[in-house]
């Protein structure tokens, strides 16, 4: 179930690493519970500092029989006492209680989560939003909830500028809603968030491998300006080129050989697309240039920034040639 479609159920499990969505899901549940019964008693518990028996106290019948909602945060850090209390509760849930368990992602407590799912809990997943298209959809939904609209170029500019962190994206949407009126255009977004692009090493590498020298260098400058270190930038270039070379080596030998590389299928497909632009000689030149840059950013040269920029230009021009 998605975070914005939550419904009250005796046991609700909120999982996923995206804190913002999980917080909203929990807030939505509490609001729904208040709507059903204005006198609902809200109890919040922490997984890490849980003291044995607290859950039992919070869920046992109360004197005036009001409804209760118990929110347990941080199940991923739960101690053994919480796990055993919660398991005992799953066997005998109380009638007028909504128990919300929030697990912030990770492998810890997996067995417990499986038990909760097995007990028929409603599961709300709040996984991080990674793809740009999904981020655009998220921002559009944010604006729609506030009764506003933005054109496509504005959405793209907004995600480009503040899309790295979902919370920041949500806050930016809220600010645009509060400060402007009418349909939000690209010029409005540029006025508020212009000149800011969150570039990661992999975006720089993607642009360089696509042979877009200008864009690659611009992204590189943005990445450096927002605090990226030259060393991981070079590592990202090297990793991309490595995949290209590996896929090129197995290209003629069919799908089975490509699977032996231990690469994800989408990675192989993408590399095959990229390879149409690359010759073996260009690949050799690019890897040699990146190796030289790695030596230079680690103390072999005077200026690490210059070294990585030269590597980006060399890779991009090798791809373009």
């Amino acid at each position: 179930m998605a975070w914005d479609a939550v419904e009250l159920a005796p046991i609700v499990l909120v999982t996923g690493a995206e804190q913002l969505l999980a917080e909203r899901a929990v807030a939505g549940l509490i609001a729904a519970a208040k709507q059903r019964d204005a006198d609902v008693e809200v109890t919040r518990l922490e997984g890490a500092g849980y003291v044995g028996g607290t859950l039992l106290v919070a869920t046992s019948p109360s004197l005036f029989g009001e409804a209760r909602i118990v929110v347990v945060q941080g199940v991923e850090q739960a101690n053994d006492e919480l796990i055993s209390d919660a398991l005992a509760y799953l066997d005998a849930p109380a009638d007028d209680v909504v128990l919300v368990l929030h697990h912030g992602g990770g492998q810890r407590g997996k067995k417990f989560l499986d038990a909760v799912r097995g007990a028929g809990a409603t599961v709300v997943t709040c996984e991080p939003i990674k793809k740009d298209t999904d981020k655009v959809a998220f921002a559009a939904a944010e604006l729609r909830r506030a009764g506003r609209r933005a054109d496509a170029a504005a959405m793209r500019a907004l995600v480009e500028a503040v899309g790295a962190d979902l919370r920041e994206l949500a806050a930016s949407c809220a600010q645009l809603v509060a400060d402007t009126s009418g349909v939000i255009g690209a010029d409005v977004v540029n006025r508020y968030y212009g000149g800011r692009i969150e570039a990661t090493g992999f975006r720089v590498a993607d642009a360089a491998i696509a042979g877009q020298t200008g864009q690659a260098v611009a992204l590189l400058r943005h990445a450096l300006a927002t605090g990226a270190d030259p060393v991981p930038l070079v590592a990202a270039l090297a990793a991309k080129l490595r995949v290209l070379a590996k896929v090129a080596a197995t290209r003629g030998r069919g799908g089975a050989a490509a699977r032996d590389l231990g690469l994800a299928p989408w990675l192989v497909e993408r590399a095959l697309r990229d390879l149409s632009r690359w010759t073996p000689e260009a690949l050799a030149a690019a890897i040699t240039a990146v190796a030289q840059a790695d030596a230079e950013v680690k103390g072999g040269g005077r200026d690490p920034v210059f070294a990585v920029e030269r590597a980006v230009i060399r890779v991009a021009s090798a791809a373009a040639s």
């Binding site: 590592a235 090297a238 490595r242 040699t288 190796a291 680690k298 103390g299 072999g300």
Partner: peptide, 19 residues
């Protein structure tokens, strides 16, 4: 020399085998 200078071993070796 590069390996002694802390270059990522895989990358350094790739540049070598390519040569």
């Amino acid at each position: 020399t590069r390996l002694a200078g802390n270059v990522a071993p895989l990358l350094a070796m790739e540049a070598m085998t390519i040569a």
